[in-house]
Amino acid sequence: MSSARTAGQAAPGTDAPGLVAALDIGGTKIAGGLVDPFGRLLHQVQRPTPAREDAGTVLGAVHRVLDELSAHPLWGGVRSLGIGSAGPVDTSAGTVSPVNIAAWRGFPIVAEAGAHPAVRGLPVVLGGDAVAMTAAEHRYGAARPYADALCLVVSTGVGAGLVLGGSVHHGRTGNAGHLGHISVDLDGDPCPCGSRGCLEILASGTAIAARAVRDGWRPTGTDTSASAVAEAARAGDPIALASFDRAARALAAGIAATATLVEIEAAVIGGGVARAGDVLFDPLRRHLHTYAALPFAAGLTVLPAHLGTDAGLVGAAALALDELSGREGAG
């Protein structure tokens, strides 16, 4: 399946040197795009992820996305390929091990994508999906005014990335800022990661919905997703409100701990759960007053992300652009 569209004010079909090709690899879909240096998504294609198939079949879907991208008239202006992937990732080795793609464990995505005929010879840059979102929001979105910020994706899981000293902070393997698997409840439930009481099992959309159902919330229809819980909360349902309040409290604890550790100025929240709006942000800001108590952590700004569903592709491109800038500056 493919689709083409123009974002921002860019005009498709015009000469656009300095484009970046981008891949956003997740357990549900593999998206590809062409992004200009201003963060405008000029063309996009998408295929479902054959997540239950073997490694070669998943790679075949990636290559078909690259086939479609490279057939576009703008491909000639592409200078590099950025890849944002569900993780964990290992940027030092160029490998990914997405939790929801069982056949990809230590999969060499940088080498395999770089071997595609249209990509061969181009720089290929890898980042985790939450770090890609952070790069997008820092370069083009809500985190742009801040030298030190935390950007979170709160969706089926919880991912995060850090901006420190005006730059995205990757860490040795590209997993710095992995806030979803920091424990915020020492006696909490076991997490699939092997720890206990992780932020993700308290604040993700999955956790919000499960908590509401466990406490007796029943939807008017058959939808028991976090978005349905948010709709009930907006209508004043006390169980739905309590479920979001618990998630917001867990997020506040994690954000406050980060602010205390590295003195961030802002927290930017994206992902599907952030679309709940005030149902999430009002209790989050309220709980931050309790958890971010020290003077240098208090007053933290909390903002919704700006880039929405485009953040994965725009962020993968931003990572590649950052790498290109670094190389050109070093040259």
Rank of each mutant, 00 (worst) to 15 (best):
R5M: 06
T14E: 14
D15A: 13
P17I: 12
V20Y: 03
L23Q: 01
I25V: 13
I25C: 10
G32N: 00
G33L: 04
G33P: 06
D36H: 01
D54V: 02
G56Y: 09
L59K: 01
A61P: 13
E68V: 03
E68N: 03
E68I: 10
S70G: 09
I83L: 05
G84N: 02
G84P: 12
G84Q: 03
S85A: 15
V89Q: 01
S92Y: 03
S92P: 07
A93Q: 06
V99R: 11
W104L: 06
F107C: 14
P108K: 07
P117F: 00
R120C: 12
L126W: 04
A132E: 10
T134N: 06
E137K: 04
R139D: 14
A147G: 15
V153H: 12
V158A: 07
N175D: 13
G177T: 06
I182W: 05
L186C: 13
P192A: 00
G194L: 07
E200I: 00
A210F: 01
A212Q: 02
R214V: 03
D215C: 05
T222Y: 12
S225Y: 14
A226R: 03
S227D: 14
S227Q: 12
V229K: 00
A232I: 08
S243E: 04
F244E: 10
F244Y: 13
L261K: 00
E263K: 14
E265G: 14
A266R: 00
A267R: 09
V273I: 05
D278Y: 13
D282L: 07
R285I: 07
A293Q: 11
A297R: 10
L300P: 00
P304V: 04
P304I: 13
H306D: 15
H306L: 13
L307V: 02
L307T: 11
L307M: 05
T309M: 09
G312F: 10
V314F: 08
A316H: 05
A320V: 07
E323Y: 08
A330N: 06
